[in-house]
Computed example of a mutant assay.
Amino acid sequence: MERDLTATAAAIKDKDPLEALRFFALSHPGQVTFSTSFGWEDQVITDLIFRNKLPIEVFTLETGRLFLETYYVWNRTLEIYQQPIRAYFPQTAALQDMVDSKGPSSFYESVENRKECCHIRKIEPLGRALKDKKIWITGIRAEQSPNRQDMSNIEWDPSHQLLKFHPLFNWSLEAVKAYVKKNNIVYNPLHDKGFPSIGCAPCTRAVSDGVDFRAGRWWWEDQSKKECGLHVTS
Rank of each mutant, 00 (worst) to 15 (best):
E79P: 03
Q43C: 13
E62A: 06
S105N: 15
Q91T: 09
G64S: 12
G64H: 10
A93V: 13
G103L: 07
A87L: 13
E57S: 13
T63Y: 03
F59V: 02
T92R: 15
R76Q: 15
T63L: 04
Q82I: 08
A87G: 09
A94L: 08
I49C: 01
T92I: 14
K102C: 11
Q83L: 12
T63W: 04
Y72N: 08
V58N: 10
Q91M: 08
V99Q: 11
A93G: 15
A93H: 15
P84M: 06
P90H: 06
M98K: 05
L68T: 13
A87C: 13
F89P: 01
F59W: 02
T77R: 05
I80C: 04
P90Q: 03
F67E: 05
P84I: 10
L68P: 12
T70I: 00
P84F: 09
L48W: 07
T63N: 10
T60I: 00
D97F: 04
I45W: 09
V44F: 04
R76G: 07
P55F: 08
S101Q: 13
Q91G: 09
K53L: 03
Q82A: 14
D97K: 12
F50G: 02
A93E: 15
G103F: 10
K102P: 09
E41H: 07
L95R: 04
L54V: 07
Y81D: 08
V99R: 08
Q83W: 05
F50I: 04
P90R: 04
E69I: 00
A94Y: 01
L48T: 03
S101Y: 04
E57M: 09
K102R: 14
T92P: 13
T92W: 13
T77S: 13
N75K: 15
F89T: 02
F59H: 01
L48Q: 03
F59E: 00
E57K: 14
V44D: 00
P55D: 12
D42F: 03
P104M: 05
I45Q: 11
E69W: 00
E41S: 12
P90M: 07
T63R: 01
V73G: 07
T77W: 05
E62D: 14
R51V: 07
F50P: 03
P55H: 10
V99C: 09
K53A: 07
V58D: 11
Y88C: 00
Q96H: 14
P55M: 07
V73C: 11
F89W: 02
L48F: 14
Y81A: 10
R76K: 15
F89N: 00
Y88D: 00
R76E: 15
L48P: 01
G103M: 10
E79H: 02
Y88R: 01
E79L: 06
P90S: 12
I49R: 00
L66F: 06
Q83M: 09
I85M: 11
L54K: 03
L78W: 11
D100W: 11
R86V: 12
E57Y: 06
Q83S: 08
F67Y: 11
Y81N: 11
R65S: 07
E79F: 05
D97E: 11
G64D: 09
I49L: 05
L54M: 06
R86K: 15
L68H: 14
V99W: 06
G64Y: 12
P55C: 12
T92E: 15
